[in-house]
Design a protein around this nucleic acid. Structure first.
Lengths: 204, 204, 204, 204
DNA sequence: AATGAATGAGCATTCATTCAT
DNA sequence: TATGAATGAATGCTCATTCAT
């Protein structure tokens, strides 16, 4: 069993080191911005030598991509799982929104990388858009369409546009939270958003 | 006629050259991204020497700021003017949203700079937030509060949050438009947004 | 007239700076070897900033190529000129050999770059071979063929091979001179080479 | 049989591994050039771990030196042996030249390392010159001096210079062979060289 | 002996900015 | 004002070498 190894010196070092670099990079990118961050900074924060970074990542850019991939992957997986036992489309949307803001609210550095650093390049935005965002928007859209079929939501509005509206509103909550000097909880902000949204989208 | 000005006064030249540099920078930033754009590129596109850029702007960063200041200033001014003769708060929000997307939709390069390049730095985002965005959100909020006082909008929702929701939804429309491979008109996208928003925010 | 400018500060600076960099590079390459030479060293010796090197050359490698091109071009041009008024093929070969060793003997650093640094890469050797060497071997071969037609040289030996033999012998003289700890004149070494060569190649 | 050795003793393994590394290095150096070759490449081709290379060689440079030492040692030994039963100085020179080109012609990678890679450093060239080349030139010179004493060769020419001439001519044949795109046998090229050389150097 | 993960010194090149003209 | 040659600080990445296992 692994647990025995874990007590001594084990082998999770590889995973650990890769993780450490990703964690360090998230922090460094969040504090200095991607372009102003030096690979040497990341290495120092991660507690490894400069060259070691390149044993785990092909380039500085790949580190940024990896932060994105890992987080979006986990987020979508968790989202799907949480939606599994929910049938009410309105509740589904509430869960999606809630998870979205909970995740970002739980790790400020990661949130900064997501809301700010990942946006600063058309190239990356396009990939981002094609990969994670598209998948995420689909989750919203599908829940909304279910609600339309169930007669809960208005049928005169385009589900794709609706998904963007909800995402945009949540995204703005997250960005505002990061930029705000006041320190407040992000997760509860999903409530007024859903309130207006569901109210505005509901069939009468 | 221009030629007269040119002979009689140097002023328009100054404005022209400054304008030319801003226009060139918008194009170059939009196509390559801020960090990958060289001052030399901007100078070439603007038709001036590298050093000339520094007669009008203190640094590369100041060029980005100037693009922002100039555009936001003009947008808010136009917005205020267009709202002057409108009394219905719902119509005010419609005008704000419409103007927002019309402006961005009219100049794709400028839209890219706004939606992508200006987002890539926490520092800038903070200033952006403090300066233009705050002013812009205030316009929305005030219109909404008027509506609340007039009994048109629900009073159980926070006007500040509402303003962010509307802005976030519009912002997402703009970003999606930029990243989309399909070519469609951006301005009409304000309609479904307002539809859901007004419907969701209206008093019953 | 330009000569007036020349007295004050003039404009030959461009040529001068390029020349200075080439001269500096020849010295630095000769002393440290191409791969161990830093562009910063070349810049320092040339009395310019690091970046200035790149205003005149695309890369470190291009500097090496330029040293080669410039020198071979000048050598071949001088060689052709010196051969113009010579009719005796034997004398032509004597002049070629003599010029070859005089040139290398006159600039030890340049000779080192030619005999050592330029040889250290198959890629460059191939270009070298294709460009300058081929031209140079042709000069030898043509002189030899003239001698064959004039009945001065044996017709039973291949002129192309003969050219390589003569070049190889001279090349070895130059390399030995560079590596030798003794300091002697290189140019006179052409005599014994030609002696044996002409004797061995002459018709009886 | 090899399998017996493998079972009874570890020695051949050592020799095998050292050999394997030298063979791999010769191939890698020949294909990429010394400075562009990575120790990791050599290790991979040799089928050993990176670190293992350093159990047999102190540094990358020592590998190059070892290739040289091993090959020159073997060449000179074979040369001496082949000359043992020859008395005619002209035949001795023929054998030396023939062996020289046969050896290089038999292993193209080794020839490239000798003709190109070993030349790219003044430092190495000096050692090369002091060690192998000096010994080799001595073999030639001694054979020539014998011929002079026997009245076969002219006494008015310096034997040391003569040795360089012959070596230089052969060396050029080898270099040309490597760089040529045509594929031909190198060994036979010793004939025209010797032809001219002996003819030019012979007493009348 | 063998491994290969880790190290960290080293360097070509870029480009925002300056300033003599 | 305008120019553009010159500057030089700044950094991502490579790879020979080490060493704990």
């Amino acid at each position: 069993m692994r647990s025995v190894d874990s007590l001594s010196s084990a082998r999770p070092q590889v995973a650990d080191k890769r993780e450490a670099i990703l964690r360090a990079a998230t922090q460094v990118f969040a504090r200095n911005g991607y372009f102003n961050s030096k690979v040497a900074d990341i290495a120092r924060v991660a507690g490894v030598a400069d060259g070691t970074v390149y044993l785990y990542f092909k380039s500085k850019e790949e580190i940024l991509h990896s932060i994105f991939d890992k987080s979006v992957g986990a987020a979508i997986a968790e989202c799907r799982q949480q939606l599994a036992d929910v049938t009410d489309p309105r509740e589904k949307l509430r869960r999606i929104a809630s998870l979205h803001l909970e995740r970002l609210g739980a790790d400020r550095d990661l949130a900064i990388v997501f809301q700010v650093e990942l946006r600063g390049s058309t190239k990356f935005m396009e990939e981002f858009s094609a990969a994670g965002l598209a998948e995420y928007l689909r989750l919203i859209r599908e829940a909304f369409e279910e609600g339309q079929q169930a007669g809960l939501f208005r049928r005169d509005i385009n589900a794709t546009v609706v998904a963007k509206i909800l995402f945009g509103a949540l995204d703005e909550m997250a960005t505002n939270w990061i930029l705000s000097k006041r320190r407040y909880k992000l997760a509860p902000m999903s409530e007024p958003v859903l309130d207006i949204f569901l109210n505005g989208a509901s069939a009468r």
